[in-house]
Each structure stands twice: as C-alpha cells, then as structure tokens.
Design a protein around this nucleic acid. Structure first.
Lengths: 144, 144
DNA sequence: GCTTGACTTCGAGCGCGCTCTAACCTGTAG
DNA sequence: CTACAGGTTAGAGCGCGCTCGAAGTCAAGC
C-alpha cells in the first residue's frame, strides 16, 4: 500500500503520515525500488489506535513513549498497561468534567429559552474554580 | 478587586487576564487613579462561564462571538441560545466519542493484564475511520 | 529617601501539531 | 517523447492560546 492509499484509508494526509514517521510515531516504512513507502495493512490497526489516543487528548510526546515501549516488545507490557491505565483515568475524569459542563450549558440554554429577556440570564451564581484546578504549572520538563 | 486578586480567584494568571481583555473576551476593566484595573466581583461569573466553554473545547474565536453578542444586550439572546445549543451538541458528541474510546482502552488494558506476554495484545482488529471523520479541511475562513 | 512589590503597556516568543512549499524523481499512458 | 500523477526530502510556516520579558509607574512600609 502506498502512502496515498493509506492516507485515504486513515483520513490523515500523506504529509501527516510522513510527519508521524519522522517523529517516530510510525515505524519507518519499507521502501520499494524507487524509494517509495510501501505499507503493510497491519499499520492500519496501529494508526487507528493512535487516533483513539489523540481523540482522548493524549499529547504526541506520550504517544511516543508508548510507541517506543511497544517497539521494544513484550517485556514492556507492564509499563504500557500502566501508561494506558493512567491515561484512562484522565479521560474518565475529563468525561465527568464535560458532563458537568453540559448541565451548566443546559441551564443556560433553558434560561434563554424560557426567559426571552424577562429573566436575568447572565447571572447564574455558581462558584468559581469548579474542579480544583489550582494552576499547577506543568513544569515543562523535556527529555523524552 | 485588583488583577492579582482576580488571578488568584480564577486560577488564571494576570498575564492571561490582560490577554483576554486585549482580545475582547473580557470587557475593558475600569482603572483606578493610577491606571490599575479595578474589577467588580461580577466578572467572576463571566470568567467561570468562559472556563466552561474552554473546558468543553470551544475555540476562543467562538467565545468571542458569544461575548460580543452578550455585550450587545438582550436583543441577542436568541442568537446566543442558538450558539450554545450548537456547542452543546458538539460537546455531547465528543463525550460519546470519548466513551467509545474508553471501552477500547479498557479492552487493551485487559489484554495486557490477562495476557502477560501470552496473548497477542497489539492486534485488536477494529475497523479504521471510527466515527466518519472524512477529512473535511476546515476551510480556514477568518473574519471575526 | 529608599526598597519592595504589584501593577502598567507593548511586543516578542513558545510549544503544539500539523501543513505546506520547493525541488526533484519515477512509473505509466498516450 | 511527453505529460502527468503521485511519490521523495529537508525545512519553513502557520494557527492557536497563551506566556514572558522589558521598561516604566505607583503606593506602602521602614
């Protein structure tokens, strides 16, 4: 499979696929006689999984850590499981947060629908600092 | 209330608060005799709401559209309701997507936990292109 | 008077995740 | 032989949402 086909199948652009290979998210694809990438269909599974991680908000650097563990084989399965479990917890927390926001949105929408310039809609007095986001600045540590 | 206090109360930095004012997300704060911003406590409600929008993934340019409608008063309530309803739908869809991803994660984690290098964990053959993301490039239209 | 700390404006810089351009190469159809 | 589609690389550029630095002002406390 050539890069254009893979692009069509995954919904990513060829540019993005090359970019992913460059940074190590995708393994270096084998090349044909004229240097063009030739993909095995099995890559689709991996790319889809990457898509899930991306959808759930995992930053590329973390996907990269996972990818590198994966590349090192079965010995890293524990580490990978831990990584996914931590990510899962974050996603779950985020879903809960979103649901809370949804009810706030619903309240506000209901206010607009019912009130029609009769109720003071802009002041629903909920407390600030909703879920303990204490501004712990991420500390920008790099180093793979 | 001075900007530092507001920063502490909201969890945003003073830098960010000034930035928000600059771009129009926050109304221009009144200044005291020496030019320092003096905030009314009512701003907290608005900032919290902005936080909800941000948490739910609304881009700043959309918050800006909402903020400008809000600034124009009660006549824009219909438009604001529509805007929030559209956003709500997106958020709900995103939550559904995340939940689907959670079950995928769970499957994979379970595979690692049970298998321990006995099952082939890296090939759960789910179909690619999970939720009809057809690569409609956003079309980058600017203009407020 | 002097230091300290919190504020002001303006504008540059950054991290992220792509996205695109330029210049070039290759295989196939007409 | 020519045209064209689609591939290659290296590297620059972009949109987003901040984040920070420089240089200056101001008020309070010692």
């Amino acid at each position: 499979m050539k890069i254009g086909d893979l692009a069509r199948r995954t919904g990513l652009t060829a540019h993005t696929l090359r970019y992913y290979e460059r940074i190590g998210l995708l393994p270096r694809a084998s090349r044909d006689s004229s240097g063009q990438r030739n993909y095995d269909a099995s890559i689709l599974v991996w790319i889809e999984f990457l898509g899930r991680l991306k959808t759930t908000g995992m930053p590329i650097r973390d996907m990269l850590r996972y990818a590198k563990l994966r590349a090192r084989g079965a010995a890293t399965e524990d580490a990978r499981r831990v990584l996914l479990q931590q990510h899962r917890a974050k996603v779950q927390a985020h879903v809960a947060e979103l649901k809370a926001c949804l009810t706030v949105l619903d309240t506000k929408i209901a206010g607009y629908a019912a009130g029609a310039s009769k109720v003071e809609v802009d002041d629903d007095a909920t407390a600030i600092r909703p879920a303990g986001k204490i501004r712990a600045r991420p500390a920008r540590a790099r180093g793979n």
